[in-house]
Design a protein around this nucleic acid. Structure first.
Lengths: 90, 90
DNA sequence: TGTATAATTAGATAATTAACTAATTAAATA
DNA sequence: TATTTAATTAGTTAATTATCTAATTATACA
């Protein structure tokens, strides 16, 4: 788990909205492109950043690429922040 | 609370170390400058980013500026992430 | 009051980021 | 097999970020 990559990934409104969408159900890259007013390559870039931080999984299904949430990592990030805020020992 | 500013502030190793130092006790700007191998203006810049995200308080004491943690905001950020990871309703 | 100390502001620069268009790759299907 | 659809890669650009040095401001104190 790489805190810098995770917080960088979360430090963007588009990417946080993507995560909220993935809380509901899995989505293909194209479904994101249909929702956000942004070119497909820009969508790919945001999804790469989320995937690089390990916050999402990705799986090729025929001609689609399906994205899903990595709940475990989100929870870990949350615990890391909790440690910070509560002052637990390392 | 501005999630983008908070996550941006946390997306940097120097600033996260500053927060860890503030968990122990309050510090002046100069004390940070003594710890990090970095110019004073760069330290000021990092502290401005933490302060802009509301993660730290700052108070002038004589010729010193003393920084302290805003625990409340760290906790709020933590809860926000928890909501993300656990999928609570808005 | 003049000098030292603490910190910030000003201004410059190199690196990174977020966006675009055009081109390419991969898969499905008429 | 040729065409359409989904997605990525390549390459460019404007904006932001992190850093520096030099200058300034504010306070303390000999």
């Amino acid at each position: 788990m790489n805190p810098t990559a995770i917080f960088k990934a979360l430090a963007d409104d588009t990417r946080r909205q993507m995560i909220e969408m993935l809380r509901e159900r899995n989505h293909s890259a194209g479904e994101f492109a249909a929702v956000f007013n942004m070119s497909k390559p820009s969508i790919t870039n945001h999804l790469n950043i989320l995937h690089g931080a390990n916050l999402v999984y990705r799986e090729k299904k025929g001609q689609y690429v399906i994205y899903s949430l990595n709940m475990t990592l989100l929870q870990e990030a949350m615990l890391w922040l909790q440690k910070m805020s509560k002052g637990e020992e390392k």
